[in-house]
């Protein structure tokens, strides 16, 4: 029973990861592709992590000692992935915009006129 749930969780993780990769090819420009990659970084990773957590729970229920190895490490890995995925996405997007790679396909762009002002502000503070 619980094995079936674990398999379903892994399949869900796989499903969202595949969708993310399809989105990478399907979306038109850099910034929209970030969102497709975000799908892999959020649900793709989270469901895989939950599958291992559930597996650790079955080990604990069976009375085996190895459960905290699985559980603690995966919990830490999930926290680290959430923090680093967020930070790196922001870093990539910000550096892309500042190096002149503005979005090709867009309805509105609020950053267009404010960008030089902000860069001047930061230059003055340095």
């Amino acid at each position: 029973m619980i094995d079936t749930v674990i398999v379903i969780l892994v399949l869900l993780s796989l499903f969202f990861s595949i969708l993310g990769v399809i989105g990478l090819f399907r979306f038109p420009d850099f910034y929209t592709r970030i969102h497709a990659a975000g799908l892999v970084g959020s649900f793709g990773v989270l469901f895989a992590g939950f599958a291992v957590l559930l597996y650790a729970f079955t080990l604990w229920a069976a009375g085996e000692e190895a459960w905290f190895n699985y559980g603690a490490h995966v919990l830490l890995a999930l926290v680290v992935v959430v923090v680093t995925a967020t930070t790196s996405t922001h870093a990539i997007a910000r550096s892309a915009y500042r190096s002149g790679n503005t979005p090709k396909v867009h309805v509105i762009d609020a950053l267009e006129e404010d960008e030089p002002k902000m860069m001047a502000q930061e230059e003055a503070r340095r």
């Binding site: 910034y31 929209t32 970030i34 969102h35 497709a36 975000g38 799908l39 970084g41 959020s42 649900f43 959430v82 995925a85 967020t86 930070t87 996405t89 922001h90 997007a93 910000r94 915009y97 500042r98 979005p103 609020a110 950053l111 404010d114 960008e115 902000m118 502000q121 930061e122």
Partner: peptide, 27 residues
């Protein structure tokens, strides 16, 4: 800004450190 960036579909591109205004790319 971290919450916005972690959600797929929205990402913080830049932030004004003085006024804390965020510039967010939405799908």
């Amino acid at each position: 800004s971290a919450s916005i960036t972690f959600q797929p579909g929205t990402a913080t591109v830049d932030i004004n450190e003085k006024t804390r205004e965020m510039y967010i790319h939405c799908l």
